[in-house]
Design a protein around this nucleic acid. Structure first.
Lengths: 203, 203, 203, 203
DNA sequence: GATGAATGAGGATTCATTCAT
DNA sequence: TATGAATGAATCCTCATTCAT
């Protein structure tokens, strides 16, 4: 996971600096994941990272800046995870199934993404909205492409894209973040969701 | 919308007290909705409510306490809105459509619920989880009942309930909260979602 | 124990009022004794007394006022306890022994006096000083009278009075308030102190 | 007077930090001495110390923490003052006289100790009790040692130690803190008290 | 670059006291 | 008299950010 580079984040010139930057980013991911943005403190982050408080400002302009960097990181990582899970020659339906399964696996291993991305709604509404709109667009593109292949209905569009995204997000919440003993695995959940996507629930 | 009564919220014994409590709750809904929990301040709330700062503590033990009361309020209100939108003699599918349409209307008029409920994830994780788990259960019950009526497939369960809830929540986010010029109305969105729920997207 | 009457304390005209006043005074003694002046709250006092918050101000002008009334009460009670313990025909030395024994008994039963009188040092320095100066004077009078009787040395005066008072106060602290299992009883402590007073510790 | 180091007090790592800490401690001694714990405010302390409000929390966790540190300081200082006033080769009685005289001198110059130590009864009861119990033990040790030397009676013990401490404390209150024009000096007071201790008041 | 002390605005909370009923 | 709601001054404490070394 590499940090999104913005003006508010300085690029280190030495190897030592690069290491410090990485330590800060990792520490921030844990800290924000565990406590949320507002309860997290810069001093906790630097303590976790094992650097002095003042060093934080060598790399980031503000608490907001590192948070934004992290959101970009995570947002990017989520997309990469979904992309990595799919093969170019999969059929449209198969492709959605694989993307969801990949996302569920990823979420289970990075439980902090939900908290961090959700909190962006309050800390940096812009990236929050960007995050979901970008994903929705990507999904819509895939759905359209599926329609062009003749696998999906022709009349599906943005509404369906948002609906599908909502399904996936909430399945991740329930089966990755809030997973319970005895719950179906990622593959099964993805299969059920895929059936719903394909044929709906009507008898 | 009536306030959830907990230990941390004192029950007024006079009419004047009841009015003050209501003013505080309403002011808090706006304040939290506009600024989020952490940026909101008690003094802003009391200023909006037109009462003295100290009066806040006549009714609530803390900033957390009023937030919790509000989440319960909203959570309750969301359920009521969905319930009010449906008729007992509707067919299962029709019922889901009506519930979603009702929710979309409600969300459009109470845009603050998204922020408030979402922020509960950080301020009061317990009620956040409770909120979604309760709704999911309710949806699952409806789906099962639909299956018993023979309208829905027999094998649908919790996964489908969470998927459906996710659809609804994200459609609300996109078409109620982030509504744009030219977007389809609640009825149309609900109709599209209902089609997806019924038959899926496969051709 | 009857309340010291000052301007800041209103005299009740009805029987009902007299009862309320008494309840308030008793409640205040416990509250101040347990928590000290600053940690004590008027609302705790009225709650203990079983009356409404506002009723407090029917009887006292302020938190300070009830505290002062209480200090006077206690101060008076301490003197009464010592006086009650002595007989007019006791010899001077015997008299000091009896007064101390009486005080120790009294302190053991009213542990709150120490806290209340000590705290007067901060809340109402005037009565604090008055309290000890009055007692010291009384002791000095007794010592002089003993000297006139030929039982005590002629050269004893104020220094000895304060020294004796200090002895008594600290023996009360140690053997009444901080009493431990196996400690000597009031009579024994008083006897030892009396021996010290009479003959000193020299061999 | 060096600060008692507890967990709640951070140890400065630089010279500048050490100076700030000292300034805070000195300012606190004056502030608590003049106004007492509850009336004292952190902002007054930092103002006196000439540092920013926030700097207080660089060194102490809370108002209580600095108060506790101060009580330890004072408690230590009182003991040191008494110890410094005595010579190892003094006879037991002479030694008590010197210790008292030393204490009276010290108290006259540090009038705030009475308020601060007395207030510990309310703010930090533990150190209050510790303070007096430690001193009482020390006195008892001296008395016993005097008995072993054959200068004091064999039967004197804890009661006499507390009695002696009480004498000393109250003589300090009267002749150091509440000193009046024309009062006997420390040496005279100590001499009178010493006579009382040695031979009592009996004729 | 790194360090850690210094800064001060900001906000939650308490509670004695007043007041309308 | 009794009641309990209303008031708002007062103060502790947090923590992002700056700065001197």
């Amino acid at each position: 996971m590499s940090a999104g580079q913005q003006e508010s984040q300085k690029v280190p010139r030495t190897e030592r600096g690069r290491k410090t930057l990485r330590k800060l980013l990792d520490a921030a991911a844990s800290e924000f994941g565990e406590h949320g943005f507002h309860e997290a403190s810069i001093s906790s982050i630097t303590r976790r990272a094992g650097v002095a408080l003042g060093s934080f400002y060598t790399y980031f302009d503000s608490k907001d800046a590192i948070f934004r960097a992290l959101v970009q990181d995570m947002s990017e990582a989520v997309k990469v995870a979904a992309r990595d899970a799919i093969e170019p020659d999969m059929r449209p339906l198969e492709l959605e199934r694989a993307a969801l399964a990949g996302f569920l696996e990823f979420a289970a291993e990075h439980k902090e993404i939900y908290r961090i991305i959700d909190e962006a709604e309050f800390v940096d509404p812009r990236s929050y909205r960007d995050h979901y709109e970008t994903i929705a667009e990507r999904i819509r593109d895939r759905l359209r492409s599926g329609a062009e292949h003749g696998d999906f209905r022709d009349d599906i569009g943005e509404v369906e894209a948002w609906a599908l995204m909502g399904m996936n997000v909430f399945l991740g919440l329930r089966y990755a973040i809030w997973r319970r003993e005895g719950d179906p695995g990622s593959a099964e959940v993805a299969a059920s969701a895929n059936a719903l996507l394909a044929r709906g629930v009507a008898n």
